[in-house]
Write a protein that binds this DNA or RNA. Structure first.
Lengths: 204, 204
DNA sequence: GTCTATAGAGAGATAGAC
DNA sequence: GTCTATCTCTCTATAGAC
């Protein structure tokens, strides 16, 4: 392929990446398609070429792709951890490091948009709900594998994810890692308590 | 005062109230001043008459006033509860009831805006941070009065508030009270554990 | 696939009559 | 204090040349 620029990032991917960054930082309504085009070094025409459904289609895809990426990040960290407690601890630690490295800008890939559109855009709310459920399934599955009963595992997953989302919002708002650190401790405590209960139950 | 309409709600208050409702449901960027004027049955001129600083000044005031109202709600509930565990339980229950009664629209009065502007509007971020801190102070103060040591009380307050904020986001997104219920249980568990630890420490 | 130009609607903000 | 008219800007979306 003479003259071809090898490994150049395709336009569609650049648009998705830039959109993901802008949506998570500024939200859906505050981010314009022109800003996305500029940030991704594409033209408005290209944005509509790849996403004929306009802003909503673009956001739908950003939420789902970003959600899968975040899930993969959790699974990678969990695979490298010795147990569920370490996995949760490591994930919260990584979230805190990312917050610090980005000036408290990059937190959850979907939370900012989720809050905005939950009551006003059913298409995007469904994308958010599907994504949250996929995370909850992964967390609960790991909890079940660690010996926690299924209902308890689901409740635990909900609380751990809520702690993470709440910590993201508080740490971004207060510009401090203190909320993330306290919530990491609490998430670890909840997981530990659930594990202790399951061990006690199996002893009977 | 012949002919005076007694107890008519003043225009300024109507604007604040309508803004609070729209901002918390749709966010800052998605809510227009014309929509606020229409919803509050005022004119655009009146909005700028009372809030010459425009949209940002209006939002700043909405965040602070809404935050004080939410704090007062907590304090009322806490005053009527027999202990800290009941206070937390009752507050989460009330939050769930409001979510259900409003079709999962009315959650935290500041969270939606907080997520949007944390990285882009320093004035509003400061209003959000001040408000969160006032809630954390109230919660931690009650924890200290219940016998929990100050540092632990602060960490507990951060986790309980994060659980509440995370539960709001998840319940709105999934359109289910399940996250709110699980997070209520976890918040109660965290408070109970802190109280048990403080009793054990004072016994030594 | 990429790019420019532009339509049409709506935004925030202002001026000035009443 | 209230209201209308309007300025200017930006938004989403589309059309069509290349």
């Amino acid at each position: 392929m003479p003259g071809a620029t090898v490994n150049a990032i395709p336009t569609r991917a650049r648009i998705l990446y830039a959109s993901a960054e802008l949506f998570r930082r500024q939200g859906y309504a505050a981010t314009g398609l022109k800003q996305i085009a500029a940030e991704s070094e594409a033209t408005l025409g290209s944005v509509y070429h790849f996403f004929p459904g306009g802003k909503q289609q673009l956001a739908d895809e950003v939420l789902r792709v970003g959600g899968r990426f975040f899930l993969a990040l959790y699974e990678t960290i969990a695979a490298g951890a010795v147990d569920l407690v370490s996995a949760v601890r490591d994930f919260f630690d990584g979230a805190g490091q990312t917050l610090l490295a980005t000036g408290f800008a990059d937190a959850c890939p979907i939370a900012t948009v989720a809050g905005e559109i939950a009551s006003t855009n059913e298409v995007l709310r469904a994308a958010v709900a599907d994504t949250f459920e996929s995370w909850l399934d992964a967390l609960a599955e790991d909890a079940v594998e660690a010996g926690i009963e299924a209902d308890r595992a689901r409740a635990l997953a909900l609380s751990v994810l809520a702690l993470l989302e709440g910590a993201f919002l508080l740490s971004r708002s207060l510009r401090s890692l203190e909320p993330m650190r306290s919530c990491a401790d609490s998430a670890v405590a909840l997981v530990s308590a659930a594990l202790a209960d399951s061990r006690e139950a199996s002893r009977r």
